[in-house]
Design a protein around this nucleic acid. Structure first.
Lengths: 245, 245
DNA sequence: AACAACATGTTGTCAGACAACATGTTGTTG
DNA sequence: CAACAACATGTTGTCTGACAACATGTTGTT
Protein backbone atom coordinates (compact mmCIF):
# COMPACT_ATOMS: atom_id res chain seq x y z
CA UNK A 1 0.00 0.00 0.00
CA UNK A 2 1.24 3.38 -0.97
CA UNK A 3 2.02 5.57 1.97
CA UNK A 4 0.31 8.92 1.98
CA UNK A 5 2.71 11.80 2.32
CA UNK A 6 2.06 15.17 3.84
CA UNK A 7 2.18 17.90 1.31
CA UNK A 8 5.45 19.76 1.58
CA UNK A 9 5.89 23.48 1.68
CA UNK A 10 7.05 24.41 -1.77
CA UNK A 11 9.70 27.10 -2.06
CA UNK A 12 7.67 30.28 -2.08
CA UNK A 13 8.33 32.87 -4.73
CA UNK A 14 9.19 36.37 -3.65
CA UNK A 15 6.20 38.06 -5.31
CA UNK A 16 3.86 35.63 -3.56
CA UNK A 17 5.42 36.36 -0.19
CA UNK A 18 5.12 40.08 -0.69
CA UNK A 19 1.58 39.89 -2.04
CA UNK A 20 0.56 37.89 1.01
CA UNK A 21 2.23 40.32 3.37
CA UNK A 22 0.55 43.30 1.74
CA UNK A 23 -2.82 41.56 1.58
CA UNK A 24 -2.48 40.75 5.25
CA UNK A 25 -1.74 44.34 6.12
CA UNK A 26 -4.76 45.46 4.14
CA UNK A 27 -7.14 42.95 5.64
CA UNK A 28 -5.90 43.53 9.15
CA UNK A 29 -6.36 47.27 8.77
CA UNK A 30 -2.74 48.36 8.94
CA UNK A 31 -3.30 49.77 5.48
CA UNK A 32 -6.68 51.44 5.32
CA UNK A 33 -9.04 51.76 2.33
CA UNK A 34 -8.40 54.96 0.44
CA UNK A 35 -4.88 55.12 1.78
CA UNK A 36 -1.83 55.18 -0.40
CA UNK A 37 0.61 52.37 -0.69
CA UNK A 38 4.30 53.18 -0.39
CA UNK A 39 5.90 53.70 -3.78
CA UNK A 40 7.18 50.70 -5.63
CA UNK A 41 10.68 52.02 -5.14
CA UNK A 42 10.23 52.29 -1.38
CA UNK A 43 8.65 48.86 -1.19
CA UNK A 44 11.51 47.33 -3.11
CA UNK A 45 13.94 48.90 -0.66
CA UNK A 46 11.86 47.85 2.34
CA UNK A 47 11.58 44.23 1.23
CA UNK A 48 15.07 44.18 -0.19
CA UNK A 49 14.00 42.99 -3.62
CA UNK A 50 13.90 44.38 -7.13
CA UNK A 51 11.08 46.58 -8.28
CA UNK A 52 9.95 43.96 -10.77
CA UNK A 53 9.22 41.63 -7.90
CA UNK A 54 7.17 44.27 -6.12
CA UNK A 55 5.33 44.97 -9.34
CA UNK A 56 4.37 41.33 -9.76
CA UNK A 57 3.04 41.27 -6.23
CA UNK A 58 1.03 44.40 -6.85
CA UNK A 59 -0.23 42.97 -10.14
CA UNK A 60 -1.76 40.08 -8.21
CA UNK A 61 -3.45 42.35 -5.72
CA UNK A 62 -4.75 44.59 -8.48
CA UNK A 63 -6.24 41.60 -10.22
CA UNK A 64 -7.96 40.65 -7.01
CA UNK A 65 -9.36 44.14 -6.70
CA UNK A 66 -7.59 44.84 -3.42
CA UNK A 67 -5.70 47.84 -4.73
CA UNK A 68 -5.85 50.20 -7.67
CA UNK A 69 -2.98 52.12 -9.15
CA UNK A 70 -2.84 55.29 -11.19
CA UNK A 71 0.08 56.03 -13.39
CA UNK A 72 2.02 59.00 -12.17
CA UNK A 73 0.24 59.10 -8.84
CA UNK A 74 0.50 55.91 -6.85
CA UNK A 75 -1.33 52.80 -5.70
CA UNK A 76 -4.34 53.05 -3.43
CA UNK A 77 -6.12 50.55 -1.24
CA UNK A 78 -9.59 49.87 -2.57
CA UNK A 79 -12.82 49.78 -0.65
CA UNK A 80 -13.23 46.14 0.45
CA UNK A 81 -16.73 46.31 -0.98
CA UNK A 82 -15.18 46.43 -4.41
CA UNK A 83 -13.30 43.19 -4.41
CA UNK A 84 -13.78 41.48 -7.72
CA UNK A 85 -12.99 37.94 -6.69
CA UNK A 86 -14.08 35.56 -3.98
CA UNK A 87 -11.45 33.46 -2.33
CA UNK A 88 -11.27 31.25 0.73
CA UNK A 89 -7.98 31.63 2.50
CA UNK A 90 -6.03 28.67 3.76
CA UNK A 91 -6.52 29.91 7.28
CA UNK A 92 -10.22 29.06 7.03
CA UNK A 93 -9.73 25.35 7.46
CA UNK A 94 -7.90 25.23 10.72
CA UNK A 95 -10.67 25.05 13.29
CA UNK A 96 -13.79 22.98 13.19
CA UNK A 97 -15.96 26.07 13.38
CA UNK A 98 -14.26 27.62 10.39
CA UNK A 99 -14.54 24.43 8.41
CA UNK A 100 -18.25 24.30 9.20
CA UNK A 101 -18.67 27.72 7.65
CA UNK A 102 -17.14 26.61 4.39
CA UNK A 103 -19.40 23.60 4.37
CA UNK A 104 -22.42 25.83 4.96
CA UNK A 105 -21.51 27.82 1.90
CA UNK A 106 -21.15 24.73 -0.20
CA UNK A 107 -24.43 23.38 1.12
CA UNK A 108 -26.45 26.42 0.20
CA UNK A 109 -24.98 26.69 -3.26
CA UNK A 110 -25.39 23.06 -4.11
CA UNK A 111 -28.95 23.08 -2.82
CA UNK A 112 -29.74 26.03 -5.04
CA UNK A 113 -28.03 24.37 -7.96
CA UNK A 114 -30.03 21.19 -7.43
CA UNK A 115 -33.27 23.16 -7.37
CA UNK A 116 -32.35 24.75 -10.67
CA UNK A 117 -31.23 21.44 -12.08
CA UNK A 118 -34.68 20.01 -11.42
CA UNK A 119 -36.14 22.32 -14.02
CA UNK A 120 -33.21 23.04 -16.31
CA UNK A 121 -31.57 19.63 -16.70
CA UNK A 122 -31.09 18.55 -20.30
CA UNK A 123 -31.11 15.02 -21.61
CA UNK A 124 -27.33 14.97 -21.53
CA UNK A 125 -27.29 16.15 -17.95
CA UNK A 126 -29.65 13.39 -16.88
CA UNK A 127 -27.57 10.80 -18.65
CA UNK A 128 -24.36 11.97 -17.01
CA UNK A 129 -25.95 12.12 -13.59
CA UNK A 130 -27.38 8.64 -14.00
CA UNK A 131 -23.98 7.28 -14.96
CA UNK A 132 -22.23 8.86 -12.03
CA UNK A 133 -24.96 7.89 -9.63
CA UNK A 134 -24.72 4.32 -10.85
CA UNK A 135 -21.00 4.27 -10.30
CA UNK A 136 -21.48 5.34 -6.73
CA UNK A 137 -24.18 2.82 -5.96
CA UNK A 138 -22.26 -0.02 -7.49
CA UNK A 139 -18.92 0.84 -5.98
CA UNK A 140 -17.56 -1.74 -3.54
CA UNK A 141 -17.49 -1.19 0.17
CA UNK A 142 -14.24 0.68 0.76
CA UNK A 143 -11.75 -1.64 2.33
CA UNK A 144 -8.61 0.25 1.52
CA UNK A 145 -7.41 3.79 1.39
CA UNK A 146 -7.62 3.97 -2.36
CA UNK A 147 -11.17 2.70 -2.49
CA UNK A 148 -12.33 5.18 0.14
CA UNK A 149 -10.73 7.93 -1.84
CA UNK A 150 -12.49 6.64 -4.89
CA UNK A 151 -15.89 6.98 -3.24
CA UNK A 152 -15.20 10.60 -2.43
CA UNK A 153 -14.04 11.34 -5.95
CA UNK A 154 -17.19 9.83 -7.37
CA UNK A 155 -19.37 11.80 -5.00
CA UNK A 156 -17.66 14.98 -6.01
CA UNK A 157 -18.17 14.19 -9.67
CA UNK A 158 -21.84 13.63 -8.96
CA UNK A 159 -22.06 16.98 -7.20
CA UNK A 160 -20.45 18.69 -10.15
CA UNK A 161 -22.85 17.05 -12.56
CA UNK A 162 -25.70 18.54 -10.53
CA UNK A 163 -24.05 21.94 -10.64
CA UNK A 164 -23.62 21.61 -14.36
CA UNK A 165 -27.26 20.56 -14.82
CA UNK A 166 -28.35 23.76 -13.11
CA UNK A 167 -27.58 25.51 -16.37
CA UNK A 168 -25.94 28.34 -14.44
CA UNK A 169 -22.23 28.45 -15.02
CA UNK A 170 -21.60 30.39 -11.83
CA UNK A 171 -22.90 27.64 -9.61
CA UNK A 172 -20.63 25.20 -11.36
CA UNK A 173 -17.70 27.57 -10.92
CA UNK A 174 -18.14 28.28 -7.27
CA UNK A 175 -18.98 24.73 -6.29
CA UNK A 176 -15.95 23.56 -8.18
CA UNK A 177 -13.81 26.08 -6.36
CA UNK A 178 -15.11 25.20 -2.92
CA UNK A 179 -14.74 21.50 -3.65
CA UNK A 180 -11.16 22.07 -4.63
CA UNK A 181 -10.36 24.04 -1.51
CA UNK A 182 -12.06 21.48 0.72
CA UNK A 183 -10.29 18.68 -1.03
CA UNK A 184 -6.95 20.36 -0.51
CA UNK A 185 -7.42 20.72 3.20
CA UNK A 186 -9.24 17.70 4.45
CA UNK A 187 -8.69 14.87 2.07
CA UNK A 188 -6.99 12.68 4.61
CA UNK A 189 -9.48 13.49 7.32
CA UNK A 190 -12.47 12.76 5.18
CA UNK A 191 -11.06 9.55 3.87
CA UNK A 192 -10.14 8.27 7.27
CA UNK A 193 -13.65 8.83 8.47
CA UNK A 194 -15.67 6.99 5.92
CA UNK A 195 -17.26 4.05 7.59
CA UNK A 196 -19.04 1.11 6.14
CA UNK A 197 -22.20 2.00 8.04
CA UNK A 198 -22.22 5.42 6.47
CA UNK A 199 -22.13 4.13 2.95
CA UNK A 200 -25.73 2.97 2.91
CA UNK A 201 -26.91 6.26 4.35
CA UNK A 202 -24.95 8.21 1.80
CA UNK A 203 -26.28 6.07 -1.01
CA UNK A 204 -29.85 6.70 0.08
CA UNK A 205 -29.35 10.42 0.39
CA UNK A 206 -27.76 10.71 -3.04
CA UNK A 207 -30.47 8.58 -4.59
CA UNK A 208 -33.06 10.85 -3.07
CA UNK A 209 -31.43 13.89 -4.67
CA UNK A 210 -31.14 12.10 -7.97
CA UNK A 211 -34.78 11.05 -8.10
CA UNK A 212 -36.04 14.48 -7.16
CA UNK A 213 -34.11 15.98 -10.02
CA UNK A 214 -35.31 13.31 -12.40
CA UNK A 215 -38.90 14.04 -11.44
CA UNK A 216 -38.38 17.78 -11.81
CA UNK A 217 -39.21 18.33 -8.18
CA UNK A 218 -37.59 21.66 -7.47
CA UNK A 219 -38.22 22.01 -3.76
CA UNK A 220 -37.62 18.33 -3.19
CA UNK A 221 -34.22 18.57 -4.84
CA UNK A 222 -33.32 21.57 -2.77
CA UNK A 223 -34.30 19.92 0.49
CA UNK A 224 -32.74 16.58 -0.31
CA UNK A 225 -29.46 18.24 -1.16
CA UNK A 226 -29.51 20.38 1.94
CA UNK A 227 -30.30 17.34 4.01
CA UNK A 228 -27.47 15.32 2.53
CA UNK A 229 -24.89 18.02 3.07
CA UNK A 230 -25.98 18.82 6.57
CA UNK A 231 -25.68 15.17 7.48
CA UNK A 232 -22.35 14.88 5.73
CA UNK A 233 -21.12 17.86 7.67
CA UNK A 234 -22.17 16.20 10.90
CA UNK A 235 -20.50 12.96 9.94
CA UNK A 236 -17.31 14.79 9.16
CA UNK A 237 -17.17 17.16 12.08
CA UNK A 238 -18.16 14.57 14.63
CA UNK A 239 -14.97 12.70 13.95
CA UNK A 240 -12.48 15.33 12.98
CA UNK A 241 -10.27 16.44 15.80
CA UNK A 242 -9.38 20.09 15.93
CA UNK A 243 -5.77 19.35 15.27
CA UNK A 244 -6.66 16.91 12.56
CA UNK A 245 -7.87 19.59 10.23
CA UNK B 1 -28.73 68.56 -11.79
CA UNK B 2 -25.52 66.78 -12.39
CA UNK B 3 -25.43 64.96 -15.63
CA UNK B 4 -24.56 61.31 -15.40
CA UNK B 5 -21.72 60.31 -17.65
CA UNK B 6 -21.12 56.97 -19.18
CA UNK B 7 -18.14 55.29 -17.69
CA UNK B 8 -15.27 55.63 -20.10
CA UNK B 9 -13.00 52.86 -21.17
CA UNK B 10 -9.90 53.38 -19.10
CA UNK B 11 -6.62 52.90 -20.90
CA UNK B 12 -6.06 49.22 -20.39
CA UNK B 13 -2.68 48.15 -19.15
CA UNK B 14 -0.77 45.67 -21.26
CA UNK B 15 -0.54 42.96 -18.59
CA UNK B 16 -4.31 43.08 -18.12
CA UNK B 17 -4.92 42.71 -21.82
CA UNK B 18 -2.60 39.76 -22.06
CA UNK B 19 -3.97 38.10 -18.94
CA UNK B 20 -7.47 38.38 -20.33
CA UNK B 21 -6.42 36.98 -23.68
CA UNK B 22 -4.69 34.02 -22.07
CA UNK B 23 -7.55 33.41 -19.65
CA UNK B 24 -9.93 33.44 -22.56
CA UNK B 25 -7.87 30.90 -24.46
CA UNK B 26 -7.79 28.67 -21.42
CA UNK B 27 -11.50 28.87 -20.72
CA UNK B 28 -12.43 28.41 -24.32
CA UNK B 29 -10.28 25.33 -24.57
CA UNK B 30 -7.66 26.59 -26.99
CA UNK B 31 -5.16 25.90 -24.23
CA UNK B 32 -6.00 22.63 -22.56
CA UNK B 33 -5.48 21.61 -18.92
CA UNK B 34 -2.14 19.95 -18.45
CA UNK B 35 -0.80 21.62 -21.55
CA UNK B 36 2.23 23.84 -21.56
CA UNK B 37 2.11 27.56 -22.12
CA UNK B 38 4.51 29.03 -24.66
CA UNK B 39 7.65 30.29 -22.99
CA UNK B 40 7.67 33.79 -21.62
CA UNK B 41 10.16 34.72 -24.27
CA UNK B 42 7.94 33.44 -27.04
CA UNK B 43 4.90 35.14 -25.57
CA UNK B 44 6.72 38.44 -25.34
CA UNK B 45 7.66 38.11 -29.00
CA UNK B 46 4.15 37.06 -29.98
CA UNK B 47 2.48 39.95 -28.16
CA UNK B 48 5.26 42.35 -29.02
CA UNK B 49 5.89 43.39 -25.42
CA UNK B 50 8.67 43.02 -22.90
CA UNK B 51 8.99 39.88 -20.83
CA UNK B 52 8.19 41.76 -17.64
CA UNK B 53 4.75 42.53 -19.03
CA UNK B 54 4.15 38.88 -19.84
CA UNK B 55 5.35 37.94 -16.39
CA UNK B 56 2.89 40.29 -14.72
CA UNK B 57 0.08 38.81 -16.76
CA UNK B 58 1.14 35.31 -15.78
CA UNK B 59 1.45 36.38 -12.15
CA UNK B 60 -2.21 37.31 -12.17
CA UNK B 61 -3.26 34.00 -13.67
CA UNK B 62 -1.09 32.10 -11.22
CA UNK B 63 -2.71 33.93 -8.34
CA UNK B 64 -6.07 32.91 -9.70
CA UNK B 65 -4.97 29.30 -9.91
CA UNK B 66 -5.47 29.12 -13.66
CA UNK B 67 -1.87 28.18 -14.34
CA UNK B 68 1.13 26.92 -12.44
CA UNK B 69 4.73 27.45 -13.33
CA UNK B 70 7.86 25.53 -12.45
CA UNK B 71 11.21 27.16 -12.54
CA UNK B 72 13.38 25.72 -15.24
CA UNK B 73 10.52 23.87 -16.89
CA UNK B 74 7.64 26.07 -17.93
CA UNK B 75 4.11 27.15 -17.14
CA UNK B 76 1.25 24.69 -17.27
CA UNK B 77 -2.50 25.08 -17.46
CA UNK B 78 -4.11 23.83 -14.29
CA UNK B 79 -7.07 21.54 -14.00
CA UNK B 80 -10.10 23.86 -13.87
CA UNK B 81 -11.28 21.84 -10.89
CA UNK B 82 -8.39 23.31 -8.94
CA UNK B 83 -9.16 26.97 -9.29
CA UNK B 84 -8.69 28.68 -5.97
CA UNK B 85 -10.77 31.77 -6.60
CA UNK B 86 -14.23 32.50 -7.87
CA UNK B 87 -14.64 35.39 -10.23
CA UNK B 88 -17.42 36.67 -12.45
CA UNK B 89 -16.01 37.95 -15.71
CA UNK B 90 -17.11 41.19 -17.23
CA UNK B 91 -18.53 39.27 -20.14
CA UNK B 92 -21.24 37.86 -17.87
CA UNK B 93 -23.28 41.02 -17.78
CA UNK B 94 -23.89 41.57 -21.45
CA UNK B 95 -27.06 39.65 -22.12
CA UNK B 96 -30.17 39.52 -20.04
CA UNK B 97 -29.88 35.78 -19.67
CA UNK B 98 -26.36 36.07 -18.31
CA UNK B 99 -27.35 38.81 -15.94
CA UNK B 100 -30.18 36.63 -14.67
CA UNK B 101 -27.67 33.93 -13.77
CA UNK B 102 -25.65 36.30 -11.64
CA UNK B 103 -28.81 37.41 -9.90
CA UNK B 104 -29.74 33.77 -9.24
CA UNK B 105 -26.43 33.27 -7.51
CA UNK B 106 -26.89 36.33 -5.38
CA UNK B 107 -30.43 35.27 -4.53
CA UNK B 108 -29.47 31.86 -3.28
CA UNK B 109 -26.59 33.11 -1.21
CA UNK B 110 -28.50 35.93 0.37
CA UNK B 111 -31.41 33.63 1.14
CA UNK B 112 -29.06 31.23 2.87
CA UNK B 113 -27.41 34.06 4.73
CA UNK B 114 -30.78 35.34 5.91
CA UNK B 115 -31.71 31.90 7.17
CA UNK B 116 -28.51 31.76 9.17
CA UNK B 117 -28.97 35.30 10.37
CA UNK B 118 -32.32 34.34 11.86
CA UNK B 119 -30.56 32.13 14.36
CA UNK B 120 -27.12 33.67 14.62
CA UNK B 121 -27.82 37.40 14.72
CA UNK B 122 -26.30 39.20 17.68
CA UNK B 123 -27.65 42.24 19.44
CA UNK B 124 -25.36 44.45 17.42
CA UNK B 125 -26.49 42.88 14.20
CA UNK B 126 -30.13 43.52 15.04
CA UNK B 127 -29.39 47.10 15.90
CA UNK B 128 -27.54 47.72 12.67
CA UNK B 129 -30.23 46.06 10.59
CA UNK B 130 -32.94 48.07 12.33
CA UNK B 131 -31.09 51.29 11.61
CA UNK B 132 -30.59 50.50 7.97
CA UNK B 133 -34.13 49.26 7.56
CA UNK B 134 -35.38 52.45 9.10
CA UNK B 135 -33.37 54.56 6.74
CA UNK B 136 -34.90 52.76 3.80
CA UNK B 137 -38.46 53.05 5.02
CA UNK B 138 -38.10 56.71 5.83
CA UNK B 139 -36.28 57.69 2.68
CA UNK B 140 -38.20 60.05 0.41
CA UNK B 141 -39.76 58.95 -2.82
CA UNK B 142 -36.96 59.26 -5.34
CA UNK B 143 -37.56 62.25 -7.52
CA UNK B 144 -34.07 62.72 -8.81
CA UNK B 145 -31.22 60.64 -9.97
CA UNK B 146 -29.26 61.09 -6.76
CA UNK B 147 -32.15 60.03 -4.59
CA UNK B 148 -32.80 56.92 -6.64
CA UNK B 149 -29.17 56.02 -6.34
CA UNK B 150 -29.44 56.57 -2.64
CA UNK B 151 -32.24 54.04 -2.32
CA UNK B 152 -30.14 51.41 -4.02
CA UNK B 153 -27.16 52.13 -1.82
CA UNK B 154 -29.27 51.78 1.28
CA UNK B 155 -30.73 48.51 0.08
CA UNK B 156 -27.29 47.16 -0.55
CA UNK B 157 -26.16 48.16 2.90
CA UNK B 158 -29.16 46.37 4.33
CA UNK B 159 -28.30 43.24 2.36
CA UNK B 160 -24.76 43.37 3.66
CA UNK B 161 -25.98 43.72 7.22
CA UNK B 162 -27.96 40.52 6.73
CA UNK B 163 -24.92 38.79 5.35
CA UNK B 164 -22.91 39.99 8.31
CA UNK B 165 -25.55 38.80 10.75
CA UNK B 166 -25.28 35.30 9.32
CA UNK B 167 -22.11 34.96 11.32
CA UNK B 168 -20.45 33.30 8.34
CA UNK B 169 -17.75 35.48 6.88
CA UNK B 170 -17.88 33.69 3.54
CA UNK B 171 -21.45 34.72 2.85
CA UNK B 172 -20.51 38.30 3.59
CA UNK B 173 -17.53 38.03 1.28
CA UNK B 174 -19.27 36.53 -1.69
CA UNK B 175 -22.37 38.71 -1.41
CA UNK B 176 -20.14 41.73 -1.19
CA UNK B 177 -18.29 40.64 -4.27
CA UNK B 178 -21.40 39.94 -6.32
CA UNK B 179 -22.93 43.22 -5.22
CA UNK B 180 -19.84 45.06 -6.35
CA UNK B 181 -19.81 43.38 -9.73
CA UNK B 182 -23.50 44.00 -10.25
CA UNK B 183 -23.10 47.58 -9.20
CA UNK B 184 -20.30 48.07 -11.66
CA UNK B 185 -22.29 46.83 -14.59
CA UNK B 186 -25.82 47.95 -14.15
CA UNK B 187 -25.90 50.96 -11.92
CA UNK B 188 -27.43 53.22 -14.52
CA UNK B 189 -29.92 50.65 -15.68
CA UNK B 190 -31.13 49.88 -12.20
CA UNK B 191 -31.44 53.49 -11.23
CA UNK B 192 -33.33 54.43 -14.33
CA UNK B 193 -35.85 51.72 -13.65
CA UNK B 194 -36.85 52.45 -10.12
CA UNK B 195 -40.43 53.58 -10.15
CA UNK B 196 -42.48 55.16 -7.47
CA UNK B 197 -44.94 52.29 -7.55
CA UNK B 198 -42.16 49.85 -6.86
CA UNK B 199 -41.03 51.57 -3.72
CA UNK B 200 -43.95 50.43 -1.61
CA UNK B 201 -43.56 46.86 -2.81
CA UNK B 202 -39.85 46.90 -2.04
CA UNK B 203 -40.47 48.36 1.38
CA UNK B 204 -42.92 45.60 2.21
CA UNK B 205 -40.62 42.87 1.01
CA UNK B 206 -37.67 44.19 2.98
CA UNK B 207 -39.80 44.61 6.08
CA UNK B 208 -40.91 41.03 5.75
CA UNK B 209 -37.30 39.84 5.66
CA UNK B 210 -36.43 42.04 8.60
CA UNK B 211 -39.25 40.80 10.78
CA UNK B 212 -38.58 37.18 10.04
CA UNK B 213 -34.99 37.61 11.14
CA UNK B 214 -36.06 39.49 14.24
CA UNK B 215 -38.40 36.66 15.16
CA UNK B 216 -35.74 34.05 14.51
CA UNK B 217 -37.82 32.47 11.82
CA UNK B 218 -35.27 30.61 9.78
CA UNK B 219 -37.40 29.29 6.94
CA UNK B 220 -39.43 32.48 6.84
CA UNK B 221 -36.28 34.54 6.41
CA UNK B 222 -35.07 32.28 3.66
CA UNK B 223 -38.33 32.44 1.74
CA UNK B 224 -38.86 36.15 2.24
CA UNK B 225 -35.38 36.87 0.92
CA UNK B 226 -35.79 34.56 -2.02
CA UNK B 227 -39.12 36.15 -2.78
CA UNK B 228 -37.74 39.66 -2.65
CA UNK B 229 -34.85 38.90 -4.94
CA UNK B 230 -36.89 36.98 -7.45
CA UNK B 231 -39.26 39.90 -7.68
CA UNK B 232 -36.41 42.37 -7.89
CA UNK B 233 -34.93 40.35 -10.70
CA UNK B 234 -38.24 40.47 -12.54
CA UNK B 235 -38.55 44.19 -12.00
CA UNK B 236 -35.09 44.73 -13.35
CA UNK B 237 -35.14 42.39 -16.31
CA UNK B 238 -38.58 43.42 -17.44
CA UNK B 239 -37.29 46.88 -18.17
CA UNK B 240 -33.70 46.40 -19.14
CA UNK B 241 -33.16 46.26 -22.85
CA UNK B 242 -30.54 43.91 -24.10
CA UNK B 243 -28.39 46.73 -25.30
CA UNK B 244 -28.95 48.64 -22.12
CA UNK B 245 -26.88 46.29 -20.04
C1' DA C 1 -3.63 87.47 -11.83
C1' DA C 2 -3.27 84.23 -15.60
C1' DC C 3 -0.85 81.20 -18.02
C1' DA C 4 3.10 78.64 -19.98
C1' DA C 5 7.30 76.20 -19.07
C1' DC C 6 9.79 73.48 -16.14
C1' DA C 7 11.10 70.24 -12.33
C1' DT C 8 9.88 66.40 -9.68
C1' DG C 9 7.89 62.11 -8.38
C1' DT C 10 5.34 57.89 -9.58
C1' DT C 11 3.72 54.16 -12.34
C1' DG C 12 4.21 51.70 -16.95
C1' DT C 13 7.24 49.59 -20.23
C1' DC C 14 11.52 48.12 -22.13
C1' DA C 15 16.11 45.77 -22.66
C1' DG C 16 19.60 42.93 -21.07
C1' DA C 17 21.95 40.30 -17.74
C1' DC C 18 22.69 36.66 -14.37
C1' DA C 19 20.89 33.11 -10.90
C1' DA C 20 18.30 28.89 -10.00
C1' DC C 21 16.57 24.89 -11.67
C1' DA C 22 15.38 20.80 -14.79
C1' DT C 23 16.66 17.96 -18.47
C1' DG C 24 19.05 15.88 -22.10
C1' DT C 25 23.83 14.98 -24.03
C1' DT C 26 28.39 13.76 -23.87
C1' DG C 27 32.50 12.00 -21.97
C1' DT C 28 34.76 9.25 -18.56
C1' DT C 29 35.45 5.31 -15.88
C1' DG C 30 34.71 0.76 -14.07
C1' DC D 1 28.29 -2.10 -21.92
C1' DA D 2 26.63 0.18 -17.69
C1' DA D 3 27.03 3.77 -14.38
C1' DC D 4 28.02 8.10 -13.36
C1' DA D 5 29.99 12.77 -13.63
C1' DA D 6 30.47 16.91 -16.34
C1' DC D 7 28.62 19.86 -19.52
C1' DA D 8 25.27 22.29 -22.61
C1' DT D 9 20.79 23.99 -23.24
C1' DG D 10 16.38 25.88 -22.23
C1' DT D 11 13.12 27.94 -18.92
C1' DT D 12 11.59 30.52 -15.04
C1' DG D 13 13.07 33.75 -11.20
C1' DT D 14 15.38 37.93 -9.90
C1' DC D 15 18.15 42.02 -10.53
C1' DT D 16 19.59 46.45 -12.61
C1' DG D 17 19.14 50.48 -15.10
C1' DA D 18 16.89 53.17 -18.34
C1' DC D 19 13.18 55.73 -20.60
C1' DA D 20 8.08 56.76 -21.50
C1' DA D 21 3.63 58.36 -19.79
C1' DC D 22 1.27 60.79 -16.59
C1' DA D 23 0.04 63.98 -12.55
C1' DT D 24 1.23 67.74 -9.73
C1' DG D 25 3.49 71.48 -7.77
C1' DT D 26 6.86 75.39 -8.80
C1' DT D 27 8.73 78.97 -11.22
C1' DG D 28 9.00 82.46 -14.67
C1' DT D 29 6.84 85.41 -18.01
C1' DT D 30 3.41 88.41 -19.56
Amino acid sequence: MIQQYEKIARPRRLPDEIAEKLAGDINSGVLKPGGKLPTEHDLSLAFGVARTVVREAIAQLKYEGLIQSKQGVGAFISDPNQKSVFRIGSSCFKKRKELAMVLQLQTSNLAAAAALAATNRTHNDLQLMAELHDKIIKSPIPSSYELAEDILDRSRSFYLSIAKASGNIHFLDIIRMINSRLNEHLRSVAVKNIMATDITLIHNELTCIHENIIHSNQEGSRLATRDHFEKSTERLLARADEKDV
